[in-house]
């Protein structure tokens, strides 16, 4: 194999691996649009999904459920049921991350975002703000309790 062929071969391998990765990613994004954070006003709430209003402010998360009860820094959900988070911010940009579910959505003032997820296993999981938002940014965290 001469120099040029080695290069082409290597470029082809890189291209194939990356194309495969890009296609897998594309398949996921197209198939799971409701799990991708989107502006609230151009996406419908999926059927059978309970809406939870999320308000981020300096420095706590407030959750308002469909029965109008409110909790702060604790999120109560039930396993096997789909939820839609409608996320807003009162002051600066925040970013809600629930690492074990891979759910992440920005809380932007005046730009409500929406994302759906379905917890599968009961338990207590952490969530946190991952967009730096001032003095007590690190305290903008809490637990998501998934009841069976």
């Amino acid at each position: 194999m001469n120099k040029r062929q080695t290069e082409y071969l290597y470029a082809a391998v890189v291209l194939i691996v990356l194309t495969a990765a890009a296609i897998v990613n594309l398949g996921y994004v197209v198939g799971h649009t409701s799990n991708i954070p989107q502006p609230e006003n151009n996406s419908a709430v999926p059927a059978n999904s309970s809406v939870i209003q999320v308000l981020g402010y300096q420095w706590a998360w407030q959750f308002t459920y469909s029965n109008n009860t409110t909790t702060t820094d604790v999120l109560y959900v039930t396993a096997g049921h789909e939820y839609t988070l409608q996320v807003q911010s009162r002051d600066v940009i925040h970013d809600l991350l629930i690492p074990s579910l891979g759910v992440q959505v920005y809380a932007v003032p005046d730009h409500p975002n929406q994302v759906s997820f379905e917890p599968e296993k009961a338990g207590k999981y952490i969530f946190e703000c991952v967009e730096y938002c001032g003095e007590d940014h690190y305290l903008m965290r809490g637990y998501m309790v998934v009841s069976p």
């Binding site: 990765a21 897998v24 990613n25 996921y28 994004v29 799971h32 799990n35 991708i36 954070p37 970013d95 991350l97 690492p99 891979g102 759910v103 992440q104 991952v130 967009e131």
Partner: peptide
């Protein structure tokens, strides 16, 4: 990769 990005962005 978007699913991975959602899980680890900001970490």
């Amino acid at each position: 990769d978007d699913p991975i990005n959602q899980a680890v962005h900001g970490t």
